[in-house]
């Protein structure tokens, strides 16, 4: 299907070149990395940019590094590259599990983590992981660089705090200081290639602190802070799980759509919380766990 809309195309060789090109026409330019969302949007006339700036030839954007307990993922790192990375598989389990559930292999080979958070659809699989590991997003325009906490990144469905003249250069994640265990849970209709109807990441640490992050159950992905606050310092037992589930239900706001009803999503979020807490606690205490991210 040909694209009727015409645009200019530039392949930037460096970050400076990309930012400079963007500064020339920030209103009507779009950055293209994997293009798995962008191309669909252009084809279907959702957007009509005048200029596309391709960032795939910028070497730094391909880098994944891990030092001083900080994982850094360049703007053009794909989900397949995350899936194939041993450091991420062994140390940032929730990110790894989420990456391997995004769409299908052919999409993961192109789609990037950065593109995923820039599209910012409420169901985005990678978001819970980014919340659990206190991610920060590095952005740059032609005269400035700033760092945005993941907590301030998502401002609404398909909206972020990235300004029109800024590009994301990398995303960093912190490896937790204490001993922790974590897991990702996702509900789709079937395994392989489906959007999350509910997604949840749970991280349990040795000193009984808990982190719970959700996607697809509200306009933006977020931490379930009230649930975390309640669980803090407590044992994972049936009574506490029950109460935590009720609190969780009060701080999510799922909608009814073609994929699932609001009631069903709420119910599943509660089930995921129980599974996630139990599984992570078992993992933490060294028990053998047969984990299955997709419910």
């Amino acid at each position: 299907m040909p694209i009727s809309h015409e645009f200019e195309y530039h392949k930037a060789k460096s970050i400076d070149e990309a930012v400079k090109l963007l500064s020339e026409n920030p209103e009507n330019s779009k950055i293209i990395a994997g293009g798995t969302d962008l191309t669909v949007h252009i084809k279907e006339d959702v957007i009509a940019p005048d200029v596309l700036i391709d960032i795939k030839a910028i070497p730094e954007f391909k880098e994944i590094s891990f030092s001083n307990n900080v994982l850094s993922i360049g703007a053009n790192v794909t989900f397949s590259e995350i899936e194939d990375n041993k450091i991420i598989e062994n140390n940032f389990r929730v990110l790894w599990e989420a990456a391997s559930t995004v769409a299908s292999v052919g999409v993961r080979n192109r789609a990037t983590l950065t593109g995923n958070i820039c599209s910012a659809v409420p169901s985005l699989d990678s978001a819970p992981a980014l919340f659990l590991y206190d991610a920060e997003v590095y952005v740059k325009n032609s005269d400035n660089e700033r760092v945005i906490s993941i907590n301030d990144w998502f401002t609404g469905p398909k909206r972020t705090s990235l300004k029109k003249d800024e590009i994301v250069t990398k995303i960093t994640l912190k490896f937790p200081k204490e001993k922790t265990a974590s897991c990702y849970k996702k509900l789709g209709r079937y395994k392989g290639e489906d959007l999350a109807q509910v997604g949840m990441g749970v991280l349990v640490s040795e000193n009984k602190e808990y982190k719970v992050a959700v996607c697809a159950v509200g306009p933006v992905p977020k931490r379930a802070t009230k649930t975390e606050e309640f669980l803090k310092g407590k044992e994972i037992n049936d009574a506490n799980i029950k109460e935590a589930q009720e609190i969780l239900a009060t701080e999510i706001s799922p909608i009814t759509d073609i994929r699932a009803s609001k009631e069903y999503r709420t119910h599943i979020a509660k089930v995921m919380l129980e599974k996630g807490l139990k599984e992570s606690s078992d993992l933490l205490s060294g028990k053998e766990v047969k984990s299955e991210p997709i419910l």
Binding site: K11, I32, G35, T39, D54, N109, R110
Partner: peptide, 20 residues
């Protein structure tokens, strides 16, 4: 689907200029 540098991609979502 086609293989681009050995990896499967959706050719309906790739612009020809990108694969120069």
């Amino acid at each position: 689907a086609v293989l681009l540098n050995g990896k499967s991609v959706r050719s309906c979502l790739v612009l020809a200029v990108e694969v120069d």
